[in-house]
Simulated scan of single mutants.
Amino acid sequence: MRRLRRKIKQDAELDITSFMNLMIVLVPVLLLSLVFSQVRILNLQLPVNSEPQENTELNDAPKVLELIVNAEGFVINYPSGVLLTELNKQHGEYPYLQLSKYLQDLKLTFQQQGIEKSDILLLLAEDTEYQTIVSTMDTVRSFKAVVAANLVDAELFPNISLGDAPE
């Protein structure tokens, strides 16, 4: 007769060293990738009242710098309703570089006259594209300047308010 040999089953040991090595590499990589996926938020201000109130004199009314964005280009007013300049589209594109240069000169003029101005009111036409709004906000907020052989963002008008353009 044949003897049946039964092997005694032993519990197999679980070898997790390769899994631990994978986790040691994977966790830092995932943590480092989280830094690059930040959400950007653009802070906006409520528009200031450009109409003089009944109890204030005309000289005490806040002077508002307005930038009207319409289908033809940019219109800059200061104080509210008084035309400074118009920058028309060139080849179907908004003149962001010209706008930046003009606002840099305007900021310098304000500083020379002792006017502390850091707010601007963007008045947007109804059919203005989203990318145009964001690019305009980036242009009026700051510009690239060279300081001590380094390229930095110099401040123009960081306090931005939005509104509807007049018809």
Rank of each mutant, 00 (worst) to 15 (best):
S18E: 15
M20W: 04
N21F: 14
L22C: 09
L22I: 12
M23N: 11
I24V: 06
V25Y: 01
V25F: 01
L26A: 07
L26D: 02
V29W: 02
V29Y: 01
V29G: 00
L30C: 09
L31P: 02
L31W: 12
L31G: 15
L31N: 14
S33A: 08
S33G: 04
F36N: 07
R40P: 03
L42R: 08
L42S: 06
N43Y: 13
N43Q: 14
L44S: 11
L46W: 06
L46V: 13
L46I: 11
L46H: 08
P47V: 09
V48S: 05
V48A: 08
P52I: 13
E54A: 13
T56A: 07
D60A: 15
A61D: 04
P62A: 13
P62N: 13
P62F: 02
K63D: 10
V64A: 04
L65K: 01
E66F: 01
E66S: 07
L67E: 11
I68T: 12
N70P: 00
A71G: 09
A71M: 12
F74D: 04
F74W: 06
F74Q: 05
I76T: 13
N77T: 12
Y78H: 14
P79M: 05
P79R: 13
S80N: 14
S80W: 05
G81N: 10
G81I: 09
L83N: 11
L83P: 02
L83C: 01
L84M: 12
L84G: 05
T85M: 10
T85F: 06
E86V: 13
K89Y: 06
Q90C: 08
Q90H: 11
H91M: 14
G92R: 07
G92L: 02
E93P: 04
P95R: 09
P95N: 10
L97T: 10
Q98N: 10
L99Y: 00
L99D: 02
Y102C: 00
Y102K: 03
L103P: 02
Q104P: 00
Q104C: 07
Q104S: 09
D105S: 14
L106R: 04
L108P: 01
T109N: 10
T109D: 12
F110C: 09
Q111G: 02
Q113V: 02
G114P: 00
I115Y: 08
I115L: 09
E116F: 07
E116I: 12
K117G: 00
K117I: 01
K117S: 02
S118R: 15
D119Y: 11
D119F: 04
L121V: 01
L122Q: 13
L123D: 00
L124P: 02
L124R: 05
A125T: 06
E126L: 07
T128A: 11
E129F: 11
E129Q: 13
Y130G: 04
V134F: 00
D138C: 01
V140T: 11
V140M: 04
R141N: 13
V146C: 03
V147W: 05
A148Q: 15
L151T: 14
V152G: 00
D153F: 11
E155F: 01
N159T: 14
N159F: 06
I160H: 03
I160G: 03
L162T: 08
G163C: 05
G163F: 01
D164F: 04
